[in-house]
Simulated assay, not measured.
Amino acid sequence: MSAPLKLVIFDVDGTLVDSQGDIVAAMAAAFASVDRPMLPRKDVLSVVGLSLDVIFPILQPNLPASAHRQMVEAYKNAYMELRAKAGVAQSSPLYPGALETLQALHAVPEVLLGVATGKSRRGLDKLIEGHGLEGMFLTQQVADHHPSKPHPSMILQAMADVGVAAQDTVMIGDTSFDMEMAAAAGVHGIGVSWGYHDRDRLHQAKQIVDDYSGLQSTLDKNWSVSA
């Protein structure tokens, strides 16, 4: 009897790649576009993972919707320019162990990989191409087609795409939004400590890991229990 399929969904920024330098620089450009002072770095990183149309009303609640739209466009343009100048591998490097873990999981026939990210389709495509990850993720959920995290839409669609049930699905991410999304979708959430939210914000995670070797062993243990 063959083993049941497992779905492992990864967040991107702060989980697979460290893009905080470009994120902060693009945010500075967005604030400058509406002549507002840049917020502290910690405040900016605290909302990473949400969709841009949700982020700017949070960071600048007193501005009109037209200004928020202007900030979104300024952010996107600045981010694209930064990425084009430095290259994906430098502007958004993979965290240590990320590539090896993805390759190891991808090599297991019953394990399917996905992503659920606040990035746009264009942004995710560039990232995948830049790191040579084509064909790695069977299901790819982006901000263009879903409500912002922590709404469970991304995870629900990912499970529907590949035909894997909630009990066989894991969501891996660095923010409270990822873990709240996992809980809302009824799947197992694993938080990572190397990203943009502190451990104390990941209270809805079933487990928290400190490096990619710890993630691999945690997955193995979870699957042996559920088998």
Rank of each mutant, 00 (worst) to 15 (best):
L7I: 03
V12L: 09
L16Q: 09
Q20F: 10
Q20I: 09
G21P: 07
G21K: 10
D22G: 15
A25I: 14
A29Q: 13
A32Y: 05
A32V: 08
S33M: 04
V34D: 07
P40M: 10
R41P: 09
K42C: 14
S46A: 11
V47N: 02
V47E: 04
L50S: 09
V54K: 02
F56A: 00
P61A: 11
P61V: 07
N62S: 11
A65F: 11
A65Q: 14
S66K: 14
Q70P: 01
M71H: 01
V72M: 12
V72T: 12
E73N: 02
Y75S: 04
G87P: 07
G87N: 06
S91D: 05
Y95H: 01
Y95S: 05
P96K: 08
G97I: 00
E100Q: 05
A104G: 05
L105G: 11
L105I: 12
A107H: 07
L112Q: 14
A116C: 11
G118C: 11
S120E: 05
R122S: 12
G123Y: 06
L127F: 14
I128K: 00
E129C: 10
G130M: 02
L133T: 05
L133W: 07
M136C: 13
Q141F: 04
A143Y: 04
H145I: 10
H145K: 15
S148K: 12
M159Q: 12
A160W: 06
D161H: 00
V162Y: 00
A165T: 15
A166E: 03
A166K: 07
T175Q: 08
S176E: 07
S176Q: 13
F177W: 13
F177D: 00
A182F: 07
A184K: 14
V187F: 01
S193D: 12
Y196L: 12
H203Q: 14
A205I: 04
A205M: 04
I208M: 04
Y212Q: 00
S213V: 14
N222I: 11
A227C: 12
